[in-house]
Design a protein around this nucleic acid. Structure first.
Lengths: 151, 151
DNA sequence: CAATTTCTTTGCTAAAGGCAAAAATAGTGA
DNA sequence: TCACTATTTTTGCCTTTAGCAAAGAAATTG
């Protein structure tokens, strides 16, 4: 058994766990400050202006069930942030897209959420920021691949 | 305005967001596979054998409210995984600690959760694992500090 | 010893999320 | 064509997660 791997895995497990708790708290604060539910913020953050998505696509990329997504979209629709139209090619599909109001909000959201991270990152060196990027990028790839294989 | 910072912040924002979703899915799967609620797993994972904790300590380190913690502990207590005794020095405080059954379970949980990460990390180089560690460590520190200042 | 503070719990409510069945549509084989 | 199957989304119902405000219990302080 690879002792070095075991030790590195333990350390990374611990760190990732802590990072997760902090980032969840951060997301919750941010969503609340913008009058959104966390689920709504998370959903809005992944829809790009001009594109349209099926319920299933959104569910998959958010790692949630389709039924959960229906409810989240209900909320966004009620606030007139997204449109929901039946696909013409296959009328079983919904086509979810941002309204103008939604696009404006999402633009602001992305801008300000990046600013928040900019605030955190502003006092460290460009090199350290790259280290963060590279480390998280590697980790994200691994977890993502693992999930596909084990879900 | 620092263009480089802005760009790095955007990239890190995006990545962190994705990592978060994946890690939540991973935690959910792991907890379910071990017959635990996610909140219970998260709680158990931070209590060390032999130590005792107040409700507030646990709430703070989990970024949750004390009342939420009372409920989580209720569940763990019902399963005889933790003991809950009144502190003798100051009887307002609860002293939460692992039972023998709890210690056994937590040991197994930590072992297997680290193994899961070991599985993910086993095919990359020691250097890349260090990059992950360093990157996440830096990020965790930043988010944690930011939270303290902005909560 | 009354008033205040601190820690935990309780009651209540909202938000997050999934499962199973229903509804609607598309495709397919006889 | 029509019955059957498969797919996509929605609905009903339930569980889990979480916080707030008030109550309860104990300590501290004037």
């Amino acid at each position: 058994m690879d002792m070095k791997l075991k030790q590195q895995a333990s350390a990374i497990t611990e760190l990732t766990f802590d990072l997760l708790r902090c980032c969840e708290a951060k997301e919750k604060m941010f969503a609340k400050d913008h009058g959104l539910k966390v689920a709504e913020f998370r959903c809005l953050r992944i829809v790009e202006a001009g594109k349209s998505y099926s319920v299933q696509e959104l569910a998959t990329s958010m790692h949630l069930s389709p039924s959960r997504l229906t409810r989240i979209i209900d909320g966004l629709f009620a606030e007139k942030l997204v449109d929901r139209v039946q696909s013409i090619e296959d009328r079983r599909f919904a086509k979810i897209s941002l309204t103008n109001k939604g696009q404006t909000l999402v633009g602001k959201l992305k801008e300000e959420y990046a600013d928040l991270h900019g605030e955190m990152l502003k006092d460290i060196s460009v090199e350290d920021r790259d280290k963060i990027y590279n480390g998280i990028s590697l980790m994200q790839g691994l977890v993502s691949t693992w999930l596909v294989r084990n879900a």
